[in-house]
Structures are given as C-alpha cells and as structure tokens.
Design a protein around this nucleic acid. Structure first.
Length: 357
DNA sequence: AACACGGGGGC
DNA sequence: GCCCCAGTGTT
C-alpha cells in the first residue's frame, strides 16, 4: 500500500512535468488575490465558462482594495450570468474583510484564509498551496474521482465519512515540499486523463496499479448517493410600465437568484394564462382599482436550473396612475442595464430587443 | 447530515 | 434527460 502511494505520487508528478499540456491563464500565478479570484469563479464552473469573467474582474479590479471599494451593483452586474450568486456576495464580503481586518494584505495562514467568506476547505487549500506553498492538499471533484478509482474506494464522496476518508488520504499523499505542483498535477490529471466519462485509461501512467481499471469499476467510481429531485415553478412577471419607467426589485432571502433583480413576480403553483393572472387576488393587491392597458403577453419560457425548472411568462402592462408598491422601485427603462438580472430575464429582454446593454 | 444554489456543455 | 464542473453556506 505504501509503495502504491509512492508510485501514485511520483507518476502523477512525472505526468505533469512530461505530458501535461493543460494551460490556464492563472497557472503559475503567485499573486494570492488573483489566485483567490480565479478559485471563487471556478467553483462548480468550467474553465471555459469562467475564464472571460476572470479577465473582466481583474481588468476592473486589479487589486483587492479596488474590489472592496466597488459599488455592490457594479460587481453583481459583472458577475451576471455566471450563476451561484452567493459566491459574488461572499467574494465582496471577503474583499472587505481583507481590506479592513488584514489592511489589504492577503492573509498567508490557512486558518485565516479559510475564515474569509466564501472560502471553504478546497479554496483555502488551493490558495495556501499555490500562493504560499503551504502543505495543504486540495480536494475537489477531480481529486475525489482520481483517488476513488486508483485506490478503489467506494465510500460515497458526498457522505461525511467519505469526505473524511478522502481528505485523510489526500493529505497523506501530498508531498509536503511540493504542494503547489502536486495539487496542480492531480487536478489537471483528473480533468485531462481520468475524466468522468470515457477516461483515457489506455494512455494512463497509473493504470498498472489502478484498482478501478483492473476490476472494471471505472464507470462505477466515484460513488455518489444523493439524487436530486427537480421542482417545477411557474413565474408570471408583470412588466408594469408607468411612463418611461418600469417596476423592479432586488431578490432577497434564501431563494434562487439572490441579489439579482426582477420584475413584479406572481408565482403560481401551476401554469396560468394571462387572463387568470389578471383576475387573481394577487394581481388585485398589486394594482387595486387602477386602470391598466394590456400591452402584450410573451410565449412561455423555460429555464433549467440544477434543482428547479422555471417556467416563466412575461405580461406587459401600462398604467397612467402610479400604484403603491413598497417592495418595488420604479426605474427608467433605459437604465435597466445598470442592474443584474437572471438569465431568464436577460434572454427575454434581448429577444424582444429591449434596451439592456 | 441534508439541502440549496445557476448556468453551460457533453453524451 | 442526466451528469459534471478547480464547492460553500445554511438549516
């Protein structure tokens, strides 16, 4: 077992030096701010998807102090479309933690790094090893997969026991004086060779001692237990025009699209046509007895999220008398570009050639 | 310990 | 349609 571990680590580093051609904009980066930014953006996000966002953020905010001083709305607008919006909120909070508590200097100890908002065990280990060469092993989707297959571990990776087992193993495998190189190697290896589907076992330098390869377990490892159930939700958006203005609000609470904006929302348990919406009690609460003109109704739009399928339709109305809507703000239609919206809404606006950018 | 959180891409 | 992606915070 011990020799298998030496074999594993040595072959991995050798593969990285001789064969690995994966290039990324932040590879070899030593600036902890840039490493941190890239890691936050890449959480649960493909490199190709996150790359342009990373470059835009670095361009707008070359230092953590610049980011900390930026207006929230401007930052959310830059994050728009990337998903998992709590990351953006936490990133901003962390930037301000660093500026206020650490005087703008990125902390260089694991515990201090992990204490920052939005930084968990993975990101803390990544920053600690890449920026400061501290001996912390990263544990991300790639590492779980590589370890589960090579060592033939069938403990579910989404269980507490599994996390602990893999974490212990990963930490034991880490060559303490080469943490950055090793962490980079195992993640690249998982992404390039030991891929989720159709891994390149024929070219794999580890296959000689890979348990999954020998026992035909490649497609069965790693094991995950949780299966997600997808809820259906029906969003009816009122585009309520008052002169050149329109009503929007910022989404708060624990629901989806935290901190993004939206129009007047009437959520219904099932599909509703525009006529049903207009005669609903909620609609009456919104408009009272104010006369309105129906401008148009969109076709139903569908957006697939990880845990939800959102069916939405947009109902355009105009009023000549201003309704009292304490939760909503009235903004000029041509200033909508200043606010961050979820994909469903930007897609709708673009398809109707409404000014957004 | 279980669950929620976006959007995109591969098959 | 299902799985995965340089995971974290909340309940």
């Amino acid at each position: 077992m011990i020799s298998d571990r030496h074999f594993f680590t040595e072959k991995l580093l050798e593969w990285n030096r001789d064969t690995n051609t994966r290039s990324m904009p932040w590879k070899g980066e030593k600036n902890p701010y840039k490493i941190w930014l890239s890691e936050i953006i890449l959480q649960q996000t493909r490199v190709e998807q996150g790359w342009p966002y990373y470059e835009r953020f670095i361009q707008h905010y070359p230092t953590v102090k610049k980011l900390a001083a930026a207006p929230d709305e401007e930052v959310f607008r830059l994050w728009q479309g990337l998903g998992y919006y709590a990351r953006c909120k936490n990133m901003l909070a962390a930037a301000r933690q660093i500026t206020n508590i650490h005087e703008g200097k990125f902390p260089d100890q694991y515990d201090q790094i992990k204490a920052l908002k939005g930084i968990g065990p993975y990101t803390a280990a990544a920053i600690a090893s890449f920026a400061f060469h501290l001996p912390y092993a990263v544990l991300d989707g790639n590492v779980f997969r590589v370890l589960a297959r090579y060592f033939g571990i069938d403990t579910p990776i989404d269980s507490t026991a599994g996390k602990k087992q893999f974490d212990t193993l990963a930490q034991e495998l880490l060559p303490k004086t080469h943490s950055a190189e090793y962490n980079q190697s195992i993640m690249d290896f998982g992404a390039v060779v030991c891929k989720p589907q159709q891994p390149s076992c024929d070219d794999c330098p580890l296959r000689k001692k890979c348990v999954a390869h020998h026992q035909q377990l490649i497609s069965l490892l790693p094991v995950k237990t949780k299966k997600l159930q997808i809820k259906k939700r029906y969003f009816n958006y009122l585009l309520l025009h008052y002169g050149n203005d329109i009503f929007i609000r910022k989404r708060t609470g624990n629901d989806i699209w935290q901190n993004l904006h939206e129009f007047i929302l009437i959520e219904t348990p099932g599909p509703s046509d525009a006529a049903t919406i207009q005669s609903s009690p909620t609609f009456k609460t919104i408009l009272g007895n104010i006369p309105f003109e129906l401008e148009g109704v969109s076709a139903p739009l569908k957006q697939q999220l990880t845990h939800q399928t959102i069916h939405s339709q947009f109902i355009s109305l105009s009023v000549k008398q201003r309704p009292d809507l304490p939760d909503y703000t009235l903004v000029p239609r041509n200033s909508l570009h200043k606010y961050a919206f979820p994909k469903t809404i930007t897609a709708f606006l673009e398809s109707h050639h409404l000014q957004l950018f």
